[in-house]
């Protein structure tokens, strides 16, 4: 199952990383080279293996339903790239481009 240039485009889209056109072919080659080594695993018979989900058994430890949470030394407005009135701002989604605006 060789990774194609189109696969790289698709995966980059899923991972939200812009990839330069000129890098697509070489990335496909690199991923193929790495995945080629992974194909070793096909030799292993795992038909009867019961995969353990997560390490350390005994199940998940739960917490009681009360606070306070682990605190923040400074509010989000001090580290977020852009904020207004406590909101974190991002460019509007293309799907909401047509949304009406309230008076500022």
């Amino acid at each position: 199952m060789a990774v194609t240039r189109e696969d790289v485009v698709k995966v980059a889209k899923l991972a939200n990383i812009a990839i330069d056109e000129t890098r697509l072919d070489s990335l496909a080659l690199e991923l193929n080279a790495i995945l080629g080594h992974m194909d070793e695993l096909r030799k292993v018979d795992t038909a009867r293996v019961q995969t353990a989900e997560g390490l350390g058994s005994g199940g998940q430890r739960l917490r009681a339903d009360y606070g306070p949470p682990d605190g923040l030394a400074s509010a989000p407005a001090t580290f977020a790239p852009e904020t207004r009135d406590g909101f974190v701002l991002v460019p509007r989604l293309a799907t909401h481009e047509g949304s009406p605006e309230r008076a500022p």
Binding site: L41, V44, T46, V49, T51
Partner: peptide, 10 residues
């Protein structure tokens, strides 16, 4: 991924 988890168990 699933294959790797199985081999990890081994």
């Amino acid at each position: 991924y699933k294959k790797a988890q199985a081999v990890r168990t081994l």
